[in-house]
Structure formats: C-alpha cells, structure tokens
Design a protein around this nucleic acid. Structure first.
Lengths: 243, 243
DNA sequence: GCCGGGTTCCAACAAAAGTTAAGGACGCGG
DNA sequence: CCGCGTCCTTAACTTTTGTTGGAACCCGGC
C-alpha cells in the first residue's frame, strides 16, 4: 500500500466525520507520509518513549494499552483504518501508554514538525484534529463507565457495538457480522476481567442465542437483545460535525 | 470573588503547567468572565445539554460523571480550582457527561465565541489549551486502568494520590493531609464499587495504619505503604511542559 | 436541647469474578 | 500427516464484591 492510499483513507474518514473544505483536503493530500508494515501483536510506540511522528492506520487493527506494576494490562481503545491513534503525542511528547498492532498492519507516519507547521498554516485543520482528540477523550470516558459500572456481559456487548458502529462508517460491516480480531485474553484486558471470565461471558451470550464469536469474527444473532444488553447510546462518538 | 481573582487562578496554574509568554498572559487577563456561585452537589452542565460557555473553577471542588440506564453513576474525574473542566465542549458542543459541584463553588464562565476568536488570534494559547485537553485524556486513560485492573484498596489510594499531587501544585496540601470532600457513596462511584464496599476498603486502610479519612479530609499516616499501594507514577499528568 | 436526615458503619448472605489446573481443538510448520 | 504451540473450554475452589437491612453517629435547624 502506498502513501496515496493512506492519505485517501484519512481523507475519507475526515469527510464523513467533519466539515472539511476542499482546500484543506488538498493540504492533507500534500502531506509527506512514510509507510511501514508491522506484524501482528507488535508494539508501534512504547510507553515512556518520546514520539516524533504521528501514526495513521492504513490497514489493520491496533490497540492502546497500559501495563501496571503487577504486570496486568488494560486495553484502552481499539483502532481501525483511517484513524490516528497517537495524535495526542503531538503535544504530549513522552508516551504514557503503548500503541501496538492486533493484526498485521500498514501504518503511515507523519512527523510532528510537519503537522505543527500545517496547524499554523491551516487553523481549520488544527481545529479538526483537536476535535478528533476530544472525541478520543469522549470514548475514554465511556470506556471508564463500561469498566466501572456495567456487568461483564454488558461490557462485552458495549465494546462490540462501539467497534461495529465505527467499522460501519468505513464500510466494514457485512450484514450481521464484523471483525473483532482479539483473543479472549485480549478481550479480558479490554473489559477489566480475566480471560477465564471472558470465556464464561462469551459462552453465556452464545447460549442465550445473542451472538456467535469465532476466530475474531462477531455474528449478531439477536439484535434486539444485543442492543438492550449493551446499553449503547452513540452520542459520545460525536459523529455529526454540525452539532 | 471577582473575575480578576478567577483570571489570576487560571494564570497561576498555566504558569506552572506550561510555557506561557507574558503577551499571552495579557490576552488571558483581558478575557471577559462572568462569575456565578453554586451550592454543593449542584449540576453545572447537564448531560445532553448544548454548552455555550466554558467553565473555570475559581473555588470549590467539582466532578464529571456519567449516569447509565440502570441509574448507576460513574465519576470520571475530580476538579480543583484553576482548572477548566469542560474545555472540550468548545468543539464537542453537546455534552456527553455531566459536570457538577461537590462543594459550594465559585465558577467563572467564558463564552465559546470569545475563546474561538482568541485561538485564531493567539495560536500559542490554542495549543496550550489543546494540550490541557490532552492531559485530561491522559488522566482518563489512567482512570480506566485504575478501575479496570487495580484491587479496590489500590484504586482508592491511587485516586487520593492523584488528587493530592494536583492539590500540591496549587498549594493546597498541608503537611500530611489534604481535602477530598466526598462521601463514601461518591468515593464508590469514583472507584466503580458500592458505598458499602468503599466503607470496607477505608476501614481496612485505617486498620493497617495507612491513613485516616474523616469528613472529607485525608491524613496519610504511613506514606511508604500508601505509595506502594497506589502504584502511582505521575508521568501521565504531564506536568513538565518542556518534555 | 432535641429532633431529623444524611452519613457512617457493620453483619450476614448472595452473586460475580479470580485462580488454578487440565483436557481439547485447531492451525501451522516441518 | 504429524507434532507443537496457542487458544479455547471447562471444572472446582477461593476471594472479592454486591445486597439488604439495621444501628450508631453527627451535624444543622428549630
């Protein structure tokens, strides 16, 4: 995959997500991007590292996570193509968490310097990116609520629906199923439960005929029960730029 | 308290937290602010509401929270004087969570319009505020880890130490004690546990001689054990603007 | 000084989640 | 086609946390 394809993925998401002008699109299409391939389960930017570039996902799934002293890991967010998962590093230079791949991924890198110049030149783009990082924060808030207040089956359903709604925007939901390429260990790390318990929860949702989960693919069998369980309100995704 | 005192509180925090120039300070000191008093436990901005101003805490403690369908509430962050807890509303106009007071508070309001104009005029200030919202997001990430991975006693110690470190910046830690004006119910909502369990945890930390907690005042009795329990690393607060 | 309401505190029991251990399925590389 | 490793699955047991309900406490207002 080339730099052009990556820029196209970014522009596509920005068109759907913000009121971007044609001039601004030209600016973004002129951005120098260096492309690199990563295998599955590979750190992209490590906790404590000093980032000099922002990373754009062209293809593949990534996660942000933090590991605490006792070795336990918490997954903070799941990222899909078109997203810039470490835009925050532009002003928070030393990473307070890790970014790593879930699947083999194609990533584009844009230097902080380039982006900073762009912001001074095109404040509209700066605001659009700022807004992007604010939506990120809104997703963290909902993640706190999920882990803090919902029972485990609801947590799983909620994370799944959030992922599905975001995949839908980039046209990657196919009928009643979508990709969620995570092991049960990783699902546990996302929900704040152990892998054994994650397995129990999946088993329960299967037995209740709500969904099927097999090798990283979710198939929703009972949409009504699924939605009810998830307690999902998409307001926090702030998808409409006009509001 | 007057608008001047509020501007002073903001400028004081910004001086300690960022590389702000004297010109920029003048800009901020010229900001029109309207002041209002709020009683304890009062919503300031409600979930779903359309915000038109940003709110600056001059005096008092506030929290951000979300309430889910079953009525359970999760506290997302605690805010202290000098902070702008809803800066994000500048670009995310409809609130996805609630901001409310913990104690009687004096709040200043700056209109979105004023701030937006200021940003175009002074991009340095815009970047400083952007950075502020990014630190906010970093604190949410740590809060996710706290609620998702740490045992309840550590969760409590961690939230306490975060609060203490931030109070220290504004000179409100007095020897071995500091203010944390929350009921056990509210502490439970912050940690993702019930009030009964919050009480059990506090009792345990008391019995172990680690701390005393009485009527919203924390007194640390065994700093070593307290730090060890909290698993606290202040990196995520990004207090040094030069890094 | 004495209510009254909100905290705090606690006990007993129930439910959810963690731990440990072990067998089975499945895909990949030789 | 076999063997190996990873992931999934389950069971039995322990620990943590939630639930319910009630008593003690404490402060502010009358």
């Amino acid at each position: 995959m080339t730099g052009d394809a990556i820029r196209a993925a970014l522009v596509r998401r920005l068109r759907l997500t913000s009121n971007i002008s044609e001039d601004d699109i030209k600016e973004i299409e002129a951005l120098p991007i260096s492309v690199r391939q990563f295998p599955a389960e590979m750190p992209v930017v490590r906790d404590g590292e000093r980032a000099t570039d922002c990373c754009l996902i062209a293809d593949g799934f990534c996660v942000r996570s933090k590991t605490i002293a006792n070795g336990k890991r918490q997954i903070l967010s799941i990222h899909i193509p078109g997203e810039i998962p470490d835009l925050m590093s532009l002003f928070l230079h030393v990473m307070d968490h890790e970014l790593s791949t879930l699947t083999p991924s194609t990533l584009g890198f844009i230097s902080h310097e380039t982006l900073q110049k762009l912001h001074r030149r095109a404040p509209n783009i700066a605001e659009m990116f700022w807004r992007d990082t604010l939506i990120d924060a809104a997703m963290f808030r909902e993640w706190i609520v999920n882990v803090g207040q919902r029972p485990a089956p609801s947590r799983l359903a909620h994370v799944m629906i959030e992922l599905r709604e975001r995949l839908r925007i980039i046209g990657r939901v196919d009928g009643d199923h979508f990709e969620m390429p995570m092991t049960q260990e990783q699902i546990g790390e996302a929900l704040g439960i152990t892998a054994v318990h994650a397995n129990r929860v999946i088993k329960q949702l299967r037995q209740e005929g709500i969904l099927e989960f097999h090798r990283g693919r979710v198939t929703v069998l009972d949409e009504r029960k699924f939605l009810e369980l998830a307690d999902f309100d998409d307001r926090y995704l702030h998808q409409s730029p006009t509001l």
